[in-house]
Design a protein around this nucleic acid. Structure first.
Length: 469
RNA sequence: GGCGGCGUGGCCGAGUGGUUAGGCAGGGGUCUGCAAAACCCCGUACCGCGGUUCAAUUCCGCGCGCCGCCUCCA
């Protein structure tokens, strides 16, 4: 069985064959740290986190590199607005980024690098490009000469003429050709700057990802990821720089691009102002709900972030939690010789097909339904096969939800914390009332708990409780 | 204008040349003091028009509509 990945550059699904057997080298474009990230940004990181978890489970070692863009016009602007130094801004927002990622269950990369720590590498790469005739200096700026790289456009599928037809911006007068892009920008007064052979300045945006990915992963690494909005010009430019500088091809074996998060069918973006900050959403619902929304559609498709989708994700997670807690109660003491792996096999089939998470989730839902059906048997406890089935399903459930990062919370664990104790007390009072037939009193307790966000479910094993979402 | 993608039942959302997606909502049952949860049953959907084919939602063409990129952007 092999894993197929859709490669943007060939526009087809290809069998995934890593450069080095058993090892995956992966680079994902990280945030520009000038602001808090929004849900659309978060989706990208969630999606690549799921891929990374899955690849590891498939037995591959994954070396995962991600960057912070910490030098950029917007950062400088933001520093002025907040009246802080540039490095204070980037520190503030990279810390915030790490906090949100941690809450969302997105594991930190193996290598997390800052552009400003790699200026010498970028200068070196730019020098090479000039030597090789792919770049030129002009008025303190250095431009990449797009016309010198014949394959320019091969990722985004457009020709130079195509791009020129859609020009919307006045070209900088120091460019020889309108589509040439900046490798190095001459410093303006008061801006952060580094010394270079072309005078004081700072690197252009695209060069950082080339310099850093090549440094840590080397030419021809396996996976380069990012949003579809990075295909052009960012990734196109990365290819041009990297292949021109090294004289080798390909720069990257598999290009993976995730779809956007939309609001009312429009792309969530800072400029449109229709965004929801990830940190705000994380304060409102469990991370698993956000992850479910992110993967409810295929990663290459846009997902709409609307009330309906939000409710669906909440309901789905609630269903998973209820199943998980109920099932744990029903397999206590039960032993299980071996895992049937029926659902895991189906899960793998879905994920092997270009990380088809919607299909994978349907497997999970099917597992839950069948597990619930076992538990609903009146003779459940007398039916050893049912108990054993459930046990196996529960193990598969845990594994799958861990791989997707949507495993239920463990909250009402058998610990002696205050909430636990108080709820137990309330429940025992309610039970006494019930057995004495004082249902008004019992219901009053239940509804009071409900107002506090505690839902009660009676079962043959006694009452259970959970927090509502 | 150029390039790319999409249009599936009330909603979300997979997928396939002839065979069940899955979830939510809705209807009917079962269980329960009630409720909740859960289980069972119920919807023959695939933008329009042509074409290819024994057969198309699935392939091809045209049309309509929507979205993204072409400027910073996950």
């Amino acid at each position: 069985m092999s894993l197929a990945i859709y490669n943007t550059i060939t526009r087809t699904k290809e069998e995934f064959v890593p450069r080095e057997p058993g090892v995956v080298s992966m680079y994902v474009c990280g945030p520009t740290v000038y602001n808090h990230i929004h849900v659309g940004n978060a989706r990208a990181f969630i999606v690549f986190d799921v891929m990374r978890r899955y690849l590891r489970w498939r037995g591959l070692r994954v070396r995962f590199v991600q960057n912070y863009t910490d030098v950029d016009d917007r950062i400088i602007e933001r520093a002025r607005e907040e009246n802080l130094e540039v490095d204070e801004i980037t520190r503030k927002y990279s810390d915030a980024f790490e906090d949100v990622m941690s809450v969302l269950g997105v594991a930190p990369p193996n290598v997390l690098v800052r552009a400003t720590d790699h200026v010498p590498e970028m200068i070196e790469m730019i020098s090479t490009l000039i030597e090789r005739g792919f770049a030129y200096e002009s008025g303190g700026n250095v431009w990449f000469a797009v016309e010198k790289f014949p394959e320019y456009g091969k990722l985004s599928g457009r020709s130079l003429d195509d791009v020129r037809a859609g020009e919307r911006v006045e070209p900088d007068p120091s460019k020889r050709f309108p589509l040439d892009f900046a490798l190095w920008k001459a410093a303006k007064a008061g801006e952060p700057a580094w010394e270079s052979p072309w005078g004081a300045g700072r690197p252009g945006w695209h060069i950082e990802c080339s310099a850093m990915s090549l440094k840590y992963l080397g030419m021809g690494f396996d996976i380069h990821g990012g949003g579809t909005d990075l295909i052009f010009p960012h990734h196109e430019n990365e290819i041009a720089q990297s292949e021109a500088a090294t004289g080798e091809s390909p720069f990257v074996r598999y290009w993976i691009h995730n779809g956007m998060v939309n609001i009312d069918e429009q792309k969530m973006s800072k400029s449109l102002g229709n965004f929801v900050l990830a940190k705000d959403l994380v304060a409102e619902v469990p991370a698993q709900v956000i992850r479910l929304m992110a993967i409810a559609g295929h990663y290459r498709s846009d997902v709409d972030f609307g009330d309906a989708q939000f409710e669906d994700a909440k309901k789905a997670f609630e269903r998973f939690e209820i199943f998980y807690r109920n099932a744990k109660d029903r397999v206590k003491g039960g032993g299980r010789e071996e895992l049937s792996r029926e659902f895991l096999a189906r899960f793998q089939r879905a994920m092997d097909d270009d990380f088809n998470t919607p299909q994978a989730l349907s497997v999970l839902h099917d597992l839950v339904r069948q597990g619930n059906a076992r538990m609903a048997q009146p003779d459940y406890w007398e039916d050893a096969a049912a108990v054993e089935d459930l046990h196996g399903m529960l193990e598969e459930f845990v594994l799958i939800t861990e791989l997707l990062g949507v495993k239920p919370r463990e909250e009402p664990a058998a610990s002696a914390d205050l909430t636990e104790g108080l709820v137990a007390l309330a429940l025992s009072m309610r039970e006494s009332a019930r057995s004495a037939g004082r249902f008004d009193e019992a219901d009053a307790i239940r509804s009071s708990l409900g107002e506090l966000g505690i839902a009660i479910e009676d079962s043959p094993e006694g009452p259970r409780w959970r927090r509502t979402i």
